[in-house]
Design a protein around this nucleic acid. Sequence first.
DNA 1: CCTCAGGCTGAAACTCGGTTGCAAAAAGTA
DNA 2: TACTTTTTGCAACCGAGTTTCAGCCTGAGG
Lengths: 140, 140
Amino acid sequence: MSALDRLFTERGVRPTPLRREVLALLYEADRPLTWKEAFARLSPSGVNKVSLYRTFSLLEEKGLVHKVLGADGAWHYCAHPLERPGCPGNHAHFLCLQCGRMTCLVEQAIPTVDLPEGYAVEGKQLLAYGRCPSCSETQG
Amino acid sequence: MSALDRLFTERGVRPTPLRREVLALLYEADRPLTWKEAFARLSPSGVNKVSLYRTFSLLEEKGLVHKVLGADGAWHYCAHPLERPGCPGNHAHFLCLQCGRMTCLVEQAIPTVDLPEGYAVEGKQLLAYGRCPSCSETQG
DNA sequence: CCTCAGGCTGAAACTCGGTTGCAAAAAGTA
DNA sequence: TACTTTTTGCAACCGAGTTTCAGCCTGAGG
C-alpha cells in the first residue's frame, strides 16, 4: 500500500484513481493549485469538471488539503505535508496577480487576531499579492 | 459644496447622484458592504445592477474606498475615513460566516510579510472569519 | 458466483456573481 | 443650438461552482 493510499484510508476516504491522481498532482506541484490549473493538467486523462470539484471539496473536508481564497477570487488548494497531515495551513500565502501562481510562505505564521468578547474565530488567512520574481522581470 | 462632493472633485470624479448615494451609504454603514448588501439597500431607488458594479470599481480605482475579498468569495467595499482619504485599508477584517457582515479591525494592522528577493507586493489582506457576537448567541 | 445497496462518476442543466457591448440620456463645451 | 464626452440602463454573455439524476463500480452477504 502506497503512502498516499495510507493517507486516504486513515481518513476514511476510498482511494479511487481520480483521488489518487488529484492528490498526487497537488504533492507534485508543491504549491496551492486552483481548480483551473488542476483541470488543465489533468485534462489529458479526460477528467470530468464536476468530479474534480467534488474531489477537491472531499479532500478539504477530510483534512487532506487546505484551501486559500486568492485575490483573484478563486480557491487555491494545497496538500498538507506528508509528515504532518492535518496541518491547518496556518501560514501566509503570496499570490502573483500576473501568472496566478500562489506560493506558501510556510515560515510566516499568521499572527493572532485580537477580537472583542463574543467573536468566535473559525479560521483566518493572510494573503499578500503582487508580482512574483519571474513576472517582475518579464514586465517593466 | 458638501464634504462628499469635495472628495469627489479632489479625485477627479464627477459627483453624480448615484455616486453620492453609494458613497453616502458606505459612510453610513461604517463597515464593508458587499455589492449585494448595497443593492438591497438601494433597490427602493431603482438602481441598475451594472451601474452599481461600475460605481464600486470606480470608487475603488480612485482611492475613495478599499475592497476586501471575504471567505464567502464576495468583495466587500469599505469607505475610507473622511479625515484621511486615501487610506489603503491596512488593517485586519472579520467576516461573520452566518450573517455575512464584515467588520473592520482598525486597531489590528496587517503585519509585514517577509518575502524572498524579487517579489513585488502590491497589497495584502488579513481576514479572520467565524461568528460575530450576535450570531454566536442565536445559535448553540 | 450472484445479487443487492451504497458510494463514485459523468453529463446536462442551472444558479449566481460579475462583465461586455451598445444605445439612450445627461452634462459639459463652444 | 450643436457637438462631444461621460454616464446610465438594458440585454446578452461569461465563468465558477452546484444540483440533479442516471449509470457504473465496488464491496458485503448469501
